[in-house]
Computed example of a mutant assay.
Amino acid sequence: MVPQKVISSYHYYDPVHAYFLVYGIKNNNFSEKIKINPNYEEFDKLNQRVINQKDLEVTAVSAVNLWRIADNYYLLRSGSTQRSDVGPIIVSKKKYQRDEIKDLRIAIPGKSFSGYFYYKLFFNAKEEVVVRLDKIINSVVNGEVDAGLLIPGPTTTALYQKYGLVKIADINDEWKNKAGDLPLPLGSYVVSKR
Rank of each mutant, 00 (worst) to 15 (best):
Y163G: 02
S112T: 11
Y12P: 13
A158H: 09
G153T: 10
N142I: 07
S84K: 15
P154D: 15
Q53F: 13
L56Y: 00
I69C: 03
I106K: 00
N124G: 02
Y119M: 07
K167L: 02
F123G: 09
Q48S: 14
G148Y: 00
D173L: 14
E32H: 09
R194F: 02
L184T: 01
I108A: 01
N39G: 15
P38A: 08
F113A: 01
Y160F: 07
L150G: 01
S31W: 01
S84F: 12
H17I: 11
P109K: 12
I151R: 08
Y12T: 13
V64H: 03
N142L: 12
Y73A: 01
N172G: 12
G164N: 10
V190F: 06
K102L: 05
I106Y: 06
T156V: 05
Y74K: 14
Y12H: 11
S9K: 03
S8R: 12
N39T: 12
A179L: 15
L104I: 09
I171K: 11
K26V: 06
V64C: 13
E100I: 07
V64P: 09
L56R: 06
S139H: 06
N65R: 05
S8F: 13
N39P: 15
G110P: 04
S8G: 08
D181H: 09
I25Q: 06
Q82P: 12
N172Y: 11
G148F: 01
Y119L: 03
Y10Q: 11
F20T: 00
N39K: 15
K5H: 11
A158E: 12
L46C: 03
G153S: 13
V191T: 02
R132V: 05
K54S: 00
S9G: 06
V145N: 01
S8N: 11
D146P: 04
D103E: 05
Y19N: 15
D103H: 04
S84Q: 15
G24W: 15
R77K: 10
L184D: 00
Q82C: 13
H11S: 03
T81V: 08
K95Q: 13
N37E: 10
K111N: 14
E144Y: 13
F123L: 11
R83N: 11
V141N: 03
E32L: 15
E32R: 14
D146W: 00
R77T: 07
V141H: 00
L21M: 04
E127A: 05
D85P: 10
R83F: 15
V86F: 04
Y119A: 02
D44Y: 06
P3G: 15
S112F: 10
M1E: 08
R77Q: 12
Q53V: 03
Y10T: 07
I90K: 08
P3N: 09
I34E: 05
S80H: 09
Y19G: 14
L133K: 10
N29R: 09
K178E: 14
S188F: 06
A60G: 04
L76T: 05
K94L: 05
V2W: 07
V145Q: 04
R77I: 08
K167C: 11
T59N: 11
N37K: 11
G79V: 01
Y96W: 14
N124P: 04
L75G: 02
W175T: 08
S62H: 01
V190G: 12
G24F: 14
R194C: 08
N52R: 06
F20N: 07
N138Y: 15
